[in-house]
Amino acid sequence: MAPASAAPGYQPAAPIEATFHAAGPHPVAKRAGADCCSSTGDVYDIWYPSDLGADQTRHPIIAWGDGTLAHPREYDYLLSHLASWGFVVIAPDLTNTGTGVQMLDGVAYLTQLNSDPASEFYGKLDTGAVGAMGHSQGGLGTLNAAARSNGLVKTAVTLEMPSQGLCTSLPPLIPGQNICDIPTGLISGSVLLVSGTADPAPYSGATGGMQGVYDALPASIPKARAAVINASHNDVQGQPGCTNLGCNDGVDSYLGYLTAWFLDQLRGDAQAHSVFVSGTGEFQHNPRWTEQQSNIE
Rank of each mutant, 00 (worst) to 15 (best):
P3N: 11
A6I: 10
G9T: 11
Q11L: 15
A13D: 07
E17Q: 14
E17I: 07
A22T: 03
A22W: 00
A23L: 05
P25Q: 07
P27M: 02
V28A: 05
R31S: 15
A32D: 15
G33F: 02
G33H: 00
S39R: 05
T40S: 14
T40H: 10
D42L: 10
Y44D: 10
Y48T: 07
P49S: 08
P49W: 04
S50T: 05
D51R: 06
L52Y: 09
G53N: 10
A54K: 14
D55W: 01
T57A: 04
I61H: 05
A63S: 14
A63F: 06
W64D: 13
W64V: 06
D66R: 00
T68C: 00
L69E: 12
L69D: 12
P72D: 05
Y75H: 07
Y77V: 11
L82R: 03
L82Y: 05
V88T: 07
V89P: 11
A91V: 08
A91F: 03
P92V: 02
T95Y: 02
T95A: 13
N96V: 15
T97I: 02
Q102C: 08
Q102D: 13
A108Q: 13
Q112R: 13
N114E: 13
A118Y: 02
E120D: 15
E120F: 05
E120L: 13
D126G: 09
V130M: 03
G131S: 06
G139T: 08
G141A: 10
L143I: 06
N150I: 03
K154H: 06
T155Y: 03
Q164I: 08
G165I: 01
C167P: 03
P171Q: 09
P171R: 02
L173C: 00
I179A: 00
I182G: 02
S188T: 15
S190L: 14
S190A: 15
S190Q: 09
L193Q: 10
V194S: 00
S195T: 12
G196M: 05
A198T: 09
P200V: 06
G209N: 07
G209W: 08
Q211G: 10
Q211F: 12
G212N: 12
V213D: 08
P218I: 14
S220I: 10
K223Q: 13
A227Q: 04
H233A: 05
N234P: 05
Q237V: 00
G238V: 01
L245N: 12
C247H: 04
C247E: 12
V251E: 09
S253D: 06
G256H: 03
W261H: 11
L263S: 07
D269T: 02
Q271C: 03
A272C: 00
H273V: 05
F276R: 07
V277S: 06
S278H: 03
S278D: 12
S278K: 07
G279F: 08
T280S: 12
F283D: 11
P287W: 06
P287I: 13
R288F: 14
R288K: 12
R288Y: 11
E291Y: 11
Q293K: 13
Q293W: 01
I296E: 00
